[in-house]
């Protein structure tokens, strides 16, 4: 799970040192819970919920909140909270409502209080039989302003096109747009960059 404040041409390591990027690594934190052999440390672990005790994700939210709330005299811009990936929590036997509660409170903290943005990654496919995961994805769709939907090419592998990105700008009362706006790009992932282009405009075609 990542948190970061700005990612526009900024070195992430430098940003981390300056405190602009707070990186909460779920894998490491969970390791200490799963392999601690019953030795409870005094410090509450934000990932305590994966131990299967059925506890809510409140501790994780408190951790996120503590990292994002600016201190006195701190002049940071609105924060961006990135969660990668929310569906994994379902696989870790976390209840769907707990995940939705977590997202709800992240929205309260980041959107409402700090005027920031929340970016959440989930995996989903229309013919998936994982009902819980699909319900999570649908629920997030209803709450989101913009959906970026990346998928492979329907025609199969191509050296110049790695996939297709559909950007769905949800029609909202605020923007005055009545219906959802849909834009489709193709993309190619390069070493340190991703290039986007219109469909049929890849190097393989032109």
């Amino acid at each position: 799970i990542y948190h970061f404040f700005s990612l526009q041409g900024v070195s992430l390591a430098a940003a981390k040192e300056k405190g602009q990027l707070v990186f909460l690594e779920g894998l490491k934190a969970s390791k200490s819970i799963l392999f601690s052999e019953g030795q409870q440390s005094d410090e509450a672990n934000p990932f305590q919920f994966i131990s299967g005790d059925g506890s809510s994700l409140r501790a994780l939210h408190d951790c996120v909140r503590a990292a994002l709330i600016p201190g006195a005299g701190d002049s940071r811009g609105p924060p961006v909270l990135m969660v990668d990936d929310l569906g994994v929590l379902l696989s870790l036997d976390v209840r769907l409502t707990h995940i939705l509660d977590f997202i709800h409170y992240c929205r309260v903290t980041v959107n409402t209080q700090l005027k920031g943005n929340v970016v959440v990654m989930v995996h989903s496919s229309e013919d998936s039989e994982d009902e819980e995961n699909e319900r999570l994805a649908k629920s997030l769709r209803h709450q989101s302003h913009r959906i970026l939907w990346a998928q492979g090419l329907a025609t199969g592998f191509c050296k110049e096109v790695h996939g297709e990105l559909t950007v769905i700008q949800r029609g909202s009362w605020e923007t005055g747009a009545e219906s959802d706006l849909l834009r489709v790009y193709q993309y190619k992932i390069q070493d340190k960059n991703v290039s986007f282009f219109a469909r049929g405009m890849s190097a393989a075609v032109l």
Binding site: N111, T112, Q113, L114, K115, H142, Q143, S144, H145, R170, S172, W173, E174
Partner: peptide, 11 residues
């Protein structure tokens, strides 16, 4: 309400 930053859309 929206001015308070609550940017909800499913209205």
């Amino acid at each position: 309400v929206r001015g308070a930053g609550e940017r909800e859309r499913e209205r």
